[in-house]
Structures are given as C-alpha cells and as structure tokens.
Nucleic acid binder design. Structure first.
Length: 410
RNA sequence: GGGGAAAUUCCCGAGUGGCCAAAGGGGGCAGACUGUAAAUCUGUUGUCUCAGACUUCGGUGGUUCGAAUCCACCUUUCCCCA
C-alpha cells in the first residue's frame, strides 16, 4: 500500500484550518522531507492540552518523515502576543520566562523524538534578545505595511480595547523567527493554532520578499467544544500536562467527561487511533458513547502520562464509578490519628483535604445535600468524623456526583 | 502637550452618602432528571466562631456620625484635539 500523504491524514483527522498554498503544500509534503516549525511561548510553567494538540501535529509530521523544530519563545514572550486576547498580557520577567522554558523543554522531550537530528529544539531568545533596534527596523521593518497590519484579524478586537506598541511588534518578531529558522535550518513551513494565522502569513511573506524563496504556513483547529468554548479548561483552570499540576486521574476524568458531541473530534485530534475506529466510536448511539469516552480518556492519558499511569487512572475511575478495584490513584489525603483526635468536624476535614476551598462552601455543600461519606449523605454540618468512620484505615468523601477524595489514616 | 471619560466581587455590568457583601447576566458549585453526556428546572455563589462579626468596590490620604458613592493626589486605560 502506498504511503499516505501526511497532509491528507491531517485533513482527514480535522486538524487543518487554513493553508497558505493548499496544493503546493500538499505536494511538497508528499514529495520530500520538510523542515517545519511550531512556536511555543512559555507563558506558564507547564504545557497544556492546547499545546498537546500542536504536538500531535508534530508527531504526525515526524512519522511521515518530516523534521519538526520546536521553537521556544523565550524572546517573543518578552513582548507578548496580542492575538486572540482582549486584554494585555501580563508582563513576565526574563527569569520567569527562562524558568518556564526549561519546564517546556522537559515536556517536549516526552512527545517528540529529538534523537539523531530527527527534530530540533531552539529558542528565539538566542537571536531576538540581542537584536539591534535600528538594524532590525531597516532590515525587517521596511517590509511591513502598517496599513495592512491594522487590518489583520488578530488586531481587530484590540483596536477597540487598546493595543500598545510593544504588542503591535509581536507580529514582526514572529515573522523574523520564521526567516531566521529558514536561514538556519532551511525551514519553509510554519504551523500553529488558528489564532496564529496572521503571524504565520506575515513570516511566510517576509521570507518570500527577503529571500525570494517560497515559504508556507498552515493553521490547525483550536481545541474548542461544539458550542465554541475553549476546551482544556476545567473548573480548576487549565488542564495541564504536568502531573503535578493536573494529576493523571484528573486528566483522565477530564476526557472521560467530554460532551458527546466532542468525542469524535477529540479522538481524531488527540489519539492515533485509525480513523475507521474513530468514526465507529464517535457514532455509537446513546449510552454506548460512554465506551468511546473511556477509550478517549485512556488513549490521551497514555500519550501524555504513559501507559502505566493511564491504567492506574482507569482502574481508579472504574473502582469509584463501578465498584471494587484499585483505589491507589484516587486523589487522597493522609491524616494521622492525633490530627483526628476524638473526632473532627466534617467541614474541617473537607477543607483540610482541599475538597472544598472554604468552610462557608463546605456548609453550603452539606446544606444542599452534596456531600457523601462512605456512601451515606452527610445531613448535618455538625457531623463529627471519628475513627469509626474509617474502614481499613480509609474513608471516602464524595462531593456532588463525581468528585471523590479519599482520606487515609497514616 | 490640551480636553473628556473610566477603573466595582471569577468575568461582563448596575449602583452617585446610610435600605450595599453590593441589581442583572455569564461562569462556577450543588439538587432533580440522566448515561460519570447535553438540554431543562431549582437552589446557591466574600470570609469567619454565621444569632452575629469581619474584610471587599484601582492605590494613598482626607471630609462625614456614616463612603463603592464626596474631595485631593497617584496609578492605569479609553476617546477627542495637537
């Protein structure tokens, strides 16, 4: 069987949103190994699921024999990308950015194979930070029409709310990155989320002007739910790839609970399952779609945290929602006997475990009948927890229908 | 540089001296219904030793018995003019 063009794979799985030169890009990708890049601005101390989608693209591309460049935005983050934002980005210090970049670096290495030059990692701080202002303006600035920039989609809503000059420059920096990567590594394709479209075409145009060489760009769908909201946001904030920020159990549960309407899309974008299987799972009727969600949760957790963690997360979920099984991975808190004393108020215990953020909320929860201890509803805010409530040294608290927390006597 | 407007609780946005922990919406949380889904309906949504007390309305200082509301200065943002 002839090898499938990676462009068609990405298209079929629903990644592709916009392409600068559709036919040319497709042909190029089918013809020769292409060096391409995706930029990641280290604005936080961990990658999140949005980044994960980009890494899936890199992985698909790498499998097809192309060479990814993971570009850390150590330089661009100093400026801040205004795209898709209504307010100004918080300014980060150089130290914060560098520390974040180090964390990103470690995470990249889990997803992309950098051995034997199969992929490249670089940081635009290496060239952006030492740029000379006037030289930059003369070499790069001349190629940008302010009139045109102002019409760019990414500045539209900022034209109403305000846009500072520093952010306005972001596009030039990113365009320059592309040029720099072209010069250093022969990179002629930039990929990114759809909110990066303006920045990407700016870079491709720059290479065409300055180097008179073809350069291309392509954007991917952003992870949104069927009703257009950003995905990867849970009540606790973003869903992080760092297990210390989002535990594998919570990560698993996030995907286990996606809307019916989003299951197929997520399977296509975030797993490597063959498309026939994705379509089959996505079209399961009614209740059966839960099987698809289990597959989704397991597969994504496996990719991000490894098979062992994924199995544990699945077991924990099955134990809680099905009964029996291994409870090791369920979020839990250890408490010693002294702390418990002669008895401890439920609310205090709930706050201690972090199940509720404050006593007020704990009271509210109990009053509304939302707290369960060992499958029995707590009906009084004065309920005292004693050693008798622990079975084999453990007690199970449940908030609402699906937030479990184990308390273990140590 | 000159003139005008604004900054409110997670977000948007009311509130112009006591009735304001602050309308309304969104979001969150919980209950009912379900399939660990969606939609819908209901309740709830600053903290605490919850009767009551305490902290909050960009910052600092004032006026007042009493301020989110008035005054001064500062910070930030937007708009108009140059």
């Amino acid at each position: 069987m002839e090898k499938k063009n990676v462009y068609d794979i990405l298209k079929e799985r629903g990644f592709i949103q916009q392409v600068t030169h559709e036919e040319e890009v497709r042909e190029l990708l089918g013809r020769e190994p292409v060096t391409f890049y995706i930029g990641f601005d280290p604005t936080a101390d961990s990658l999140h699921v949005g980044h994960f989608l980009q890494m899936m693209v890199m992985a698909h591309m790498q499998r097809a024999g192309h060479k990814p460049i993971a570009l850390l935005g150590g330089g661009t983050t100093m400026v801040g990308d205004p795209s898709g934002r209504t307010d100004m980005r918080k300014m980060l210090t150089l130290e914060e950015i560098q520390s974040n970049a180090e964390k990103f670096k470690v995470q990249f290495e889990k997803f992309i194979d950098f051995n034997d030059g199969k992929a490249i990692m670089d940081n635009n701080a290496n060239w952006l930070l030492k740029l000379n202002y006037v030289d930059f303006l003369r070499e790069i600035g001349v190629h940008f029409s302010v009139n045109r920039m102002l019409t760019a989609e990414c500045y539209k809503n900022r034209m109403e709310k305000g846009l500072t000059f520093i952010e306005f420059n972001y596009m030039l920096m990113q365009a320059y990155d592309f040029l720099e990567l072209y010069r250093r590594y022969g990179c002629r394709l930039q990929l990114g989320g759809d909110d990066q479209w303006s920045n990407i075409i700016a870079g491709a145009d720059l290479i065409r002007r300055v180097e008179s060489e073809p350069a291309y760009g392509m954007t991917f769908t952003l992870l949104t739910t069927s009703d257009g909201k950003k995905m990867g946001k849970s009540q606790a904030g973003a869903v992080w790839l760092d297990p210390n920020k989002t535990s594998p159990y919570d990560f698993y549960q996030y995907w286990r609970n996606v809307d019916d309407a989003d299951v197929e899309k997520c399977l296509a974008l975030l797993t490597f399952l063959p498309m026939e299987e994705v379509r089959r799972l996505g079209s399961l009727p009614g209740n059966e779609i839960n099987e698809a969600k289990k597959v989704l949760a397991f597969e994504v957790t496996k990719l991000v945290h490894g098979e062992e963690e994924a199995v544990k997360a699945r077991e924990a979920a099955e134990a809680l929602f099905g009964g029996g099984g291994n409870l090791d991975m369920v979020p839990s808190t250890e408490i010693d006997k002294q702390q418990l004393g002669d008895g401890m108020n439920v609310i205090d215990l709930a706050v201690l475990t972090g199940l509720v953020p404050s006593k007020g909320e704990g009271r509210r929860l109990i009053t509304q009948g939302g707290l369960t201890i060992n499958d029995a509803k707590v009906d009084s805010i004065d309920r005292i927890i004693t050693l008798d409530d622990f079975k084999d040294g453990a007690l199970m608290m449940k908030k609402g229908k699906k937030t479990y927390h184990r308390v273990v006597i140590k």
